[in-house]
Design a protein around this nucleic acid. Sequence first.
DNA 1: TACGTTGTACAGTTTTTTCTGTACGTACTT
DNA 2: AAGTACGTACAGAAAAAACTGTACAACGTA
Lengths: 185, 185
Amino acid sequence: MDNNVQELQDYEKLKKARDRFVSEVAKNIHLYDISHSVGRLYGTVFFSEDAMTLDEMSDELGMSKTSMSTGIRSLVEVNMVERVWEKGIRKDLYKTEDDWYKSFSNVFINRWRNATEQNTIAIQETKEMLHELNDTTGSDHLKQLIKSDLTKLKQAEAYYTWLDDVISLFETGEIFDIVPKREPN
Amino acid sequence: MDNNVQELQDYEKLKKARDRFVSEVAKNIHLYDISHSVGRLYGTVFFSEDAMTLDEMSDELGMSKTSMSTGIRSLVEVNMVERVWEKGIRKDLYKTEDDWYKSFSNVFINRWRNATEQNTIAIQETKEMLHELNDTTGSDHLKQLIKSDLTKLKQAEAYYTWLDDVISLFETGEIFDIVPKREPN
DNA sequence: TACGTTGTACAGTTTTTTCTGTACGTACTT
DNA sequence: AAGTACGTACAGAAAAAACTGTACAACGTA
């Protein structure tokens, strides 16, 4: 039937349209420390009408089920995707967290919080090492270098403290008082 | 001489101390889309008393001069490192931008601004494609899917608009009114 | 209990990224 | 003009990351 042919072509067009967006998301998702194809995976699940099974994702993306499994897991870990249950369905089902403010902020906050924490610890430890060295060494030149290093570290430390404050802004949700959420129109 | 031996050991300790910090920076620098070893390179230049030449970096890190060249270039491109001139020195000299607020914010802003822009464009285009399809298709089911897709895209769009606002906060420096810079103490 | 389904650990392969050495262009020096 | 020093383009090597197929454990079903 002609109608069916036309309809199939139309579905193809839908796919194309979706793909335009998914490709772009995938291209930029690395900013959230997520790989390109996991980004595509996210996009695929995002557009799916219903929650998807691993097999469906595998079909849709033409990739191994193993990849889907690990990919989805990493998305679940950062709360961008959640597992859902449906009566009578034995397979695991997944859907994207639909609040982007939540899902993306979340990833962002976790990664950056973690990094600043680690860096701050490293600064403290480095400072300690330098102080100790300063107390034990007899070399004036070395003491001079240490002094200069400490100055640099203190500046870095100040920056990380600030960054930490910024992250808190997001963590507490205060950011939404300053930059209000936008309503879809 | 015993004193010399001791002093050498002390310099080693200085290196170790610096390394503690540099390693951590390198570990987390990927959040700024910079690779691990370019992160180490940054750290090395950061601690150097004087501006460094490519050869010095190469020695210090035990890596090829070619790598130093490309690494430094990428750091210069994102304004984390700058080239400096010193009278009588023919080689290129580099030092780190010492205002971390500037250097890091800069990288961050550029990358994210770029991503949101591209994503927003993609959303617009996808929306157009969907609207067109909606106008031409005869399938009710398809129209339903399109409607659902458009809703999702509008939500994403709202999120990106918000994100764009947030980035502007940093770009304009307004963020510092809200979260003031910290003074090193 | 035997059998089929589903998800994932793991080892090996493929792909991508990073790193190096060579070669060469440019610019300074003599 | 010839010689030397310097930075980088480019091609290939090495390393890292991503992907796949196989095998198996867990669980449900007959």
